[in-house]
């Protein structure tokens, strides 16, 4: 199987703060890969470094066989798209859903816009009725569906997901997770998903990396995690914490 994303020795420094300290990982084509960690672990920074939103100070990132330089070209963004954590902040407040979905098509000069927009809305389960609404006329879950439609409309092969459901209610979270699984299956997408919630990562991903303070703690398969076959104490702590409160 070929590698979709390869990251080697990645360092990200913000004003002397080392957010990522030499992290390496490999995501295979068609795989769903999870990054788990608490705040400050560098998991979101890793996603942002891949997209070019965070400054890379050393290390290499290779996407679909192409090693990335300082800037990303348009072709990169047709391969890689991202869904953000906060559905209330990731949609432009003055644009209708229609306008939001049209923008990527206009940027890349794609002609069959009408059809693509309708198909994208159908695919995320929203339908035509939502096409001309503004963000404030949508619920949190609907907004996240629009964000997913926007990411899919350029037909990328890789989707980066930055805590896509952590701002949603549990019942809405289930719907969005199901939707993500469905589009992944249908489009044979590669996922790189960030979450602080082990249960979500084991549900969504085949392999995962546990991160802490900008470093990789360990790399596991989902079944290793489910079977508690972990070697690091930190991972064990996370596992225990995710099982809820236990009175001592």
């Amino acid at each position: 199987m070929t590698a979709s994303i390869t990251v080697e020795g990645l360092e990200v420094v913000f004003d002397r703060f080392r957010a990522l300290k030499g992290v390496s990982l490999e995501v295979r084509e068609g795989e769903s890969y999870g990054l788990v960690g608490e705040s400050g672990s560098g998991k979101s920074t890793l996603l942002r470094a891949i997209t070019g939103l965070a400054p890379v100070s050393s290390g290499t990132i290779t996407v679909n066989g192409k090693t990335l330089g300082k800037t990303r070209d348009k072709a990169f963004y047709r391969e890689v798209q991202m869904v953000f954590q906060d559905p209330y902040g990731s949609l432009h407040p003055r644009q209708t859903v229609d306008r939001l979905l049209q923008e990527p098509l206009a940027i890349h000069g794609i002609a069959d816009g009408e059809k693509r927009i309708e198909r994208a809305l159908d695919e995320v389960g929203l339908g035509k009725g939502f096409r001309f609404r503004y963000a404030h006329q949508l619920s949190g879950g609907q907004r996240q569906r629009v964000a997913i439609a926007r990411a899919l409309i350029l037909e990328p092969s890789i989707l980066l997901l930055d805590e896509p459901t952590s701002a949603l209610d549990a019942s809405v979270q289930a719907e969005v997770l199901n939707l993500l699984e469905e589009v992944r299956r249908r489009r044979k997408l590669t996922f790189l998903m960030v979450s602080h919630d082990l249960a979500i990562i084991t549900h969504m991903c085949e392999r995962l990396m546990v991160m802490q303070n900008g470093e990789a703690v360990e790399t596991l398969t989902a079944s290793q995690l489910i079977g508690h076959r972990v070697s690091e104490d930190y991972t064990r702590n996370l596992l225990r914490a995710s099982e809820g409160f236990v009175r001592v």
């Binding site: 997770l177 699984e181 549900h203």
Partner: peptide, 10 residues
């Protein structure tokens, strides 16, 4: 809610 060790898709 997804739970570790209880595989349900969807």
């Amino acid at each position: 809610m997804p739970r570790i060790g209880f595989e349900r898709h969807p």
